[in-house]
């Protein structure tokens, strides 16, 4: 491992904050293939971390381990002080605190937009229907599509669907939001509308972990960038450091290929 201390560099302001996600030497195998190799990182409250790397580098696997959509076999992951274990209640609790946005949106096609958003608040948080509806409409307003509340996902464009997916995750009032390549399945003209929503979310102080290929977003919004390759963390740094003065050869090679 070429860059073992993934916890730095960190500004003093960040260092004083609460730890939101802690990963300590996380390892995961698919059969004999090792997808994650001793991944360690700490993400602080209100921090925006962008994970970059070539495809197949383990970015998505890592982010999916954090709310246990994938199970890591070795190491430790803790979210907001609660360690992930096999206890079902523990997992359900963490999942309801961690919002996730998928590449393929994964909206529920048989439910209207408003029902997509209110389902979990009503059944997991036990919110009365009227409160859940009010919250959902406020969130739709926030992501810029209040007029689509009673449509079905199939009637919306890709960008609108992804914004509904963000609203759906936010309706659970999570402490952390995970984004797994949120713009990769979108047409170019729709990417901006989703990124704008994500920027607004970052400005509001949400803790975010974003796997993406949008370099502009990473440069502008990220507090830190983590670069992964072949299942391990290669380099961690501020966007300025990462884009202008990377230390690792592999990072330089990656940047030369995409920029």
């Amino acid at each position: 491992m070429s860059f073992s201390d993934a916890h730095s560099p960190i500004s003093d302001d960040l260092a004083s904050r609460r730890d939101m996600i802690v990963c300590d030497n996380v390892n995961k195998w698919y059969g004999d293939f090792q997808a994650l190799k001793d991944v360690s990182a700490t993400i602080k409250e209100q921090e925006v971390v962008v994970v970059l790397g070539p495809s197949g580098s383990g970015k998505s696997t890592w982010i999916r381990c954090i709310n246990r959509l994938e199970v890591h076999q070795k190491g430790m992951i803790a979210v907001d002080g609660v360690e992930l274990s096999n206890d079902l209640r523990n997992i359900e609790k963490i999942r309801s605190e961690v919002g996730m946005v998928f590449q393929q949106f994964n909206l529920f096609p048989h439910l209207t937009v408003i029902d997509n958003i209110t389902l979990a608040p009503r059944w997991v948080r036990k919110l009365p229907k009227s409160d859940a509806d009010a919250r959902a409409r406020a969130l739709l307003d926030r992501v810029g599509i209040p007029e689509q509340a009673d449509k079905y996902p199939g009637q919306l464009s890709g960008g609108q669907q992804q914004r509904v997916a963000i609203a759906r995750a936010l309706a659970m009032e999570p402490n952390v939001m995970l984004f797994d390549e949120p713009t990769s399945a979108l047409d170019p003209e729709m990417i901006k509308e989703v990124l704008d929503v994500m920027k607004g979310l970052a400005e509001s102080g949400m803790t975010m972990m974003v796997v993406t290929h949008e370099m502009g977003f990473a440069r502008e919004v990220a507090d830190r960038i983590i670069f992964m390759e072949e299942g391990e963390i290669v380099e961690v740094g501020t966007p300025e450091h990462f884009f202008t003065d990377p230390t690792e050869d592999r990072t330089k090679l990656f940047l030369s290929q995409i920029l």
Partner: peptide
């Protein structure tokens, strides 16, 4: 993806199945 989305929202497995 439908299962994952339901799981990620914290739905229990009976809720995921029935809704």
């Amino acid at each position: 993806g439908q299962y994952e989305a339901a799981d990620a929202l914290g739905l229990t497995s009976p809720q995921r199945t029935s809704f």
